[in-house]
Design a protein around this nucleic acid. Structure first.
Lengths: 261, 261
DNA sequence: ACTATTGGTGATAATAGTGAACCGATAATT
DNA sequence: AATTATCGGTTCACTATTATCACCAATAGT
């Protein structure tokens, strides 16, 4: 279904920093012909996935998306369940906390609670995180079926900073360590100056369906702070899983208890 | 773009009362072949629009939708802006209030605040409202370009109850009345026992982009209650428009002031 | 006044999607 | 225990849809 793929990829071009996109600009961004993009956008508009600003003629994400999100939240309230956990985690650690869910082979940020500190990590709403380059991603991979993890690691890993590890074998080692420890740490592998600590959120079946994480300015990180955040994040991950109706696997809970103690 | 149309229509089959749908069921609901539906659902899944329950193999709306909704809300916070208005409106009237936005040729409910009363109108999250059969729809049509209104009225009007008016000319009269009065009333035209009163929410350019409404059990409705709700709804509509950065047109504001006085 | 860019359109060339039949597995029925 | 029906999923011959290019009118910039 290549046509559907292309149309849905158009929606990925929108983000917090680029909420409206004109026809020609979208054609350039997507690499598709302008006529094709126009037909796709009008089709998406008919279903409420985008809407056109009548003045500027630019397109933005549509109200139909809000409707679908409400339906999902009504029957499966992940965002609402996890938000209070994020707030407590942020309060406990004094840093920015966020949660993300697995969407395809990447993570989509679905909840953020910012630290009150003046120097804090800022995260854009709906940001996409790559599995190999973020603490959330490694934590997630650690509790995914290994064949899926291997497939992702072999699909070409992008470097985002000079610290991004793009070697599949080396990341597989990180993943195994994360599985043993119940958490993952990444030092500036996705964005400079950001240190991330994450633990997986579980879905029924014991596999990860997302992650909960704390992002700290890298310069602030010390061994002691790190250990304290790790314990809080792991506990928060357990609580988040519980709130969406899943008990974290026995092995994970043991690891967490060892840390908290 | 027929393929995209079909794929996006699949998403419309989900609602609060049917949050998970299996492959064969979806094929039946959509009238498409099972093979086609399977290909479409896997494509939608790849982009996070649906996800598959690993146990039941059924499909449900995906986490990618939450991400897109957050991006839209971050740059254009309609839901967050209108929710407090709904809460005040519900408090003022003692009845269930809701807001909906124009999506294609229909309205999508994007906010609800339920009445505390024991007999109250219940609305499902993300419910779709048809323009010709609801107070919100008539209010919206009244402030849409007339050619668009006429096109919609000529596209085959479905009857939902024995009180649904499906005559285009007669609805056009209702629309004109609504434009004069700044509000619309519908007595059990969409659901039995529900009386709706609505006013339009405006977008830049003076056209309606949605509506704000109060739904009351029909047996409770009296002339006096009606007038009091109308004034509250019209004021709420003004406030809702203002909160999304649009001043309601002069003519509408005059009508509202006349009513409140 | 000219040039470049915008949003948008239409006809053919190129590529895509469709669906009946089929598979193995599970669940219900006789 | 055997039978029947349903499930999710796949295949391949057949057929439809979609992409592209050149072009238009309108607006913005030089």
């Amino acid at each position: 279904m290549r046509t559907i793929d292309k149309a849905l990829k158009l929606l990925e071009e929108f983000d917090e920093s680029r909420p409206e996109i004109g026809l020609s600009e979208m054609a350039r961004l997507s690499g598709l012909d302008k006529a094709t993009v126009h037909r796709m956008l009008t089709t998406l508009a008919r279903h409420g996935f985008v809407e056109q600003n009548p003045q500027s003629k630019s397109y933005r994400l549509g109200a139909g998306i809000l409707r679908l999100a409400r339906i999902r939240e009504a029957s499966f309230p992940v965002t609402a369940s996890i938000q209070p956990v994020l707030e407590q985690l942020s309060r406990q650690t004094g840093e920015t906390a966020h949660a993300s869910l697995l969407v395809g082979d990447r993570l989509a940020t679905i909840g953020i609670c910012e630290s009150p500190k003046s120097t804090r990590v800022y995260l854009a709403a709906g940001q996409i995180l790559h599995l190999h380059a973020t603490a959330s991603g490694i934590a997630c991979l650690a509790y995914l079926p290994e064949d899926q993890a291997v497939r992702i690691l072999n699909s070409g890993l992008e470097a985002f900073t000079q610290h991004t590890d793009t070697d599949a074998a080396s990341i597989l080692t990180q993943i195994r360590t994360a599985r043993e420890n119940g958490h993952a740490c990444c030092d500036q592998t996705y964005e400079m100056d950001v240190f991330g600590i994450a633990s997986p959120i579980f879905s029924a079946g014991g596999h990860a369906c997302g992650a909960i994480a704390v992002a700290t300015p890298a310069h602030r990180m010390t061994g002691q702070l790190r250990d304290s955040i790790i314990a809080s994040v792991a506990e928060a991950a357990c609580e988040a899983s519980r709130r969406i109706g899943v008990e974290a696997p026995e092995s994970f809970r043991r690891t967490v208890n060892r840390m908290v103690a």
